[in-house]
């Protein structure tokens, strides 16, 4: 029997309860092997963080989640509470978006790392615990003595590093990094990114990088997944997806980031008018058609599923259908 995939997400749907239901994720499927790197791209509001939260059942109570999230062959969505708690952080850890608010402001950062360790391993002597925390901090380039600091005593970049150290505390097999560099300035962004790359290589971690910066993802990840309005619109090997996009949305994202980290280009993809749609009022047909430069009349009424678009690639666009002989 072959070992199961590390992560196998099948037809995941997430609907938030507010305002009559917000369908933030609508049928996402993807797979991840051990040690693999996957990039998830898309403008803000496309459902990337929602997807990350659903993987460990961290979404607010009342949120409807359906589909399957197979982590090492076990379905997270139907797991018992105690099993779920055991899986959290030991199998999959998350570097959450927004380093400024993710750490508890009134607890020392070392204590917050210790807490993750002691939750899953009982009876570790204090001195050993201290040593492990210091070691984790050193791994991410922070002196071990900073363990006694409170979050506000650290810079933004240092806090992001603490979050990464925290995520490594229980040696997970899979790390999800949700916009790990967004709040940081350019120099620090590059450092944090390099740190994540090094860790991924040295520890053999599988990493899911989430960001709206496609060029960063292309440089760091083996495969890319592009999301729009809660769906995957394109996926495939990252250099191909970035180099010759099949979906007009991917093309717009790829064109939008000529300079890494330039704030002016980051937020507004060039040549892409408007904002991503509100999940409660999705356009008919292909949800991207109102902003698409190559839209055809039929796009307003016809939604296209993900379709094979070359070796290991898929895209959800009528253009792709043209190329396929029917």
């Amino acid at each position: 029997m072959s070992t199961p995939l590390l992560l196998d997400v099948r037809d995941l749907h997430v609907t938030y309860p507010s305002g009559g239901g917000v369908p933030a994720v609508r049928g996402v499927s993807f797979q991840l092997e051990r040690g693999e790197t996957l990039g998830v791209a898309g403008e803000s509001g496309c459902g990337k963080s929602t997807l990350a939260g659903a993987l460990l059942r961290l979404l607010p109570p009342g949120t409807e989640v359906s589909g399957e999230v197979l982590l090492d062959g076990e379905n997270v969505l139907t797991m018992r509470e105690d099993r779920l708690r055991a899986v959290r952080w030991t199998e999959l850890a998350v570097v959450f978006q927004g380093a400024l608010h993710t750490l508890n402001p009134v607890k020392r950062v070392g204590w917050q790392i210790e807490e993750a360790i002691t939750t899953h391993e009982r009876g570790i002597p204090r001195s050993e615990l201290r040593g492990r925390v210091a070691e984790l901090l050193e791994t991410v380039g922070i002196p071990g003595r900073r363990a006694v600091d409170y979050p506000h005593q650290l810079s933004g970049g240092q806090r992001q590093r603490v979050l990464i150290a925290l995520a490594l505390a229980c040696s997970p097999h899979l790390l999800i990094a949700d916009e790990p560099t967004t709040a940081l300035d350019v120099m620090v962004q590059a450092q944090v990114l390099r740190l994540l790359e090094d860790l991924q290589r040295d520890l053999g971690l599988a990493v899911v990088f989430i960001t709206h910066d496609l060029s960063t993802l292309a440089a760091v990840c083996r495969r890319l997944l592009v999301m729009y309005a809660g769906r995957v619109v394109e996926d495939g090997p990252s250099d191909e997806v970035f180099g010759s996009p099949k979906h007009p949305y991917t093309a717009a994202l790829a064109a939008a980031f000529p300079i890494i980290g330039d704030a002016r280009f980051r937020m507004a993809p060039s040549g892409l008018p408007g904002d991503p749609p509100d999940p409660r009022h999705l356009p008919s047909g292909c949800t991207f058609h109102p902003r698409c430069s190559v839209a055809r009349p039929e796009c307003a009424s016809r939604a296209v599923e993900l379709w094979p678009a070359g070796e290991g690639r898929r895209a959800a666009c009528v253009q792709v259908l043209d190329e396929v002989p029917t």
Partner: peptide
Amino acid sequence: REDYLTLARAKGLRDVLVRRRH
């Protein structure tokens, strides 16, 4: 509503501990 409570739950803490400690 704070994000650090989500982090505490993600770490695998029991509900009572999330409440009592954080």
